[in-house]
Amino acid sequence: MPIFMDLHELPNGITAKDIAEMHQEDLKIEHKYNCRGLTYWCDEERQTAFCLMEAPNKQAVIDLHQKAHGAIPQQILEVNEAIVESFLGRIEDPIKSKDASLNIINDPAFRTLMIVKLKHKTLRNTEINTLKAAIRGYTTSIKALTANYNGSLVKQETATFLMSFTSVTDTIHCGLKIRDLHNCVITPDLEFKIGISAGIPITKNDGFFEDTIKTSDCLSDIAKGSFSITTAVMGLYEGENQNKPLTKDTAITVLTNKEEDFIMNLMHYTEGIWSHTAIGVNDFEENLGYSKSKLYRTMMRLVGKSPNMFLRDYRLNKALELLIKQDHNISEVAYQTGFSSPTYFTKCFHKKYGILPSSFISNNQNIV
């Protein structure tokens, strides 16, 4: 049977005790709707609650809640049991609550998510074996550090890591330790990019933690600097540490809400047009609503690249992904990633990675 998580936006004055009582009312009649309540999360501070249950469909969830106590959820999302557990740490009631008659659970589903990406600066032949060994070593260390800071490694794809934490402080301290790995080990042809944001599992979008993942991904992908966080994360960190701010020597970039919006809009637009050969800087100016000079200044300040260089590098990263899969030849990759010709693509690829695409393919370099 499918598993659903729903979101309840709580009116003022509703407490964890009230939510526990409502949950008990659900359990009393759940059999009538062929449902089974698994657990719930309650966040009095943010006035949200989330129920997790097995049900035949979304309508059964609505009908059960409406009959039991009248509190109809604002959002319902079908979820994967393993994914829920990896983000939130459980899919059933905490052990300490199981024997309580009312089973009050004041446990927020709010999480801080960190994405770490290891990226290649170059792919020169003489350094391939060194890079492979370095990536393996980093992977082992990142997994260990995540566990040491009470985090959960939700997902790993080659050299991209997604982690979930309850504490913002743990998240940032873990990120600093991960960044130190790069500073302590000499691997000049790899760079670390870290992005951190925080949020709830269900919003108006369809994915589980979709908004928060997208934000962390954008920060770790295109934001200038090696370590970027949102203003909201900075505020939460200060709240956990008696208003003590991060020291300047951490070299963490804190984006304002306006800067975060720009980064997100830039990435959203780029994802839709990067493969189109005819797209140029003028299209960015028009669609982002910036003049040529303002767009250039904003890009250099927040991304560290001009619009032209940003689009070129984005396309080259996509091209590298295709070459690693080895499903297409060089000409196909060039045109699929928006380059005007295979010759120009080869020139740009060699300039960025220090190796010709043909040599990369022939050497069968299956790395990140």
Rank of each mutant, 00 (worst) to 15 (best):
R297D: 05
E286K: 14
S291K: 10
N308C: 02
R297Q: 11
V303S: 03
S293G: 08
S306A: 10
M309G: 01
F310A: 01
R301S: 15
E285A: 12
L311C: 10
N287Q: 11
F310R: 03
L288M: 03
F310E: 00
L295G: 00
E286P: 01
L302M: 11
R301P: 00
R297W: 04
D313S: 11
S291I: 06
M309K: 14
F284D: 04
N287C: 13
L288G: 02
R312K: 14
E285C: 14
Y296G: 01
S291E: 10
M299E: 04
Y296D: 00
D313I: 09
F284P: 02
L288S: 03
N287H: 14
T298R: 02
S293Q: 13
K294F: 06
Y290N: 00
D313Y: 13
E285P: 04
F310S: 05
F310Y: 14
R312T: 14
Y290F: 15
S291G: 15
K305F: 14
Y296L: 12
T298S: 08
V303F: 04
R301Y: 04
K292S: 11
G289K: 06
Y296H: 05
E286G: 05
M299V: 05
G304S: 10
F310L: 14
F284E: 03
L311Q: 04
N308T: 11
F310N: 06
F284Q: 06
K305H: 13
R297C: 03
M300P: 01
E286R: 12
N308V: 07
L302N: 09
L295E: 01
F284W: 06
K294P: 07
S306Q: 01
N287E: 15
L295S: 01
V303Q: 08
V303W: 03
M300R: 12
M309T: 15
R312W: 04
M300W: 01
F310H: 09
S293W: 12
G304V: 08
K305M: 15
S306D: 09
P307C: 06
L288P: 02
T298M: 04
R312I: 11
G304C: 03
M309R: 14
K305I: 07
K292A: 12
K294W: 10
S291M: 02
E285D: 07
K294G: 02
T298Y: 02
Y296W: 02
G304D: 05
Y290S: 04
R301N: 14
G289L: 03
E285G: 04
T298K: 10
N287S: 14
V303M: 08
F310V: 09
L288E: 00
D313R: 12
L302K: 08
R297E: 09
T298E: 11
R301E: 15
S293Y: 09
D313M: 10
R312M: 13
K294A: 14
E286M: 07
E286F: 11
N308P: 00
D313E: 15
R301F: 08
S293T: 13
G289Q: 04
L302G: 09
S293D: 15
T298W: 00
L295Y: 00
L302S: 08
M309V: 13
S306F: 08
N287L: 11
M299K: 03
M309L: 13
K292E: 14
L311V: 12
G304N: 08
K305E: 15
R297Y: 04
Y290T: 06
Y290E: 07
K294Y: 11
L288V: 03
M309Q: 13
S306W: 06
K292I: 04
R312N: 07
G304Q: 11
K305L: 15
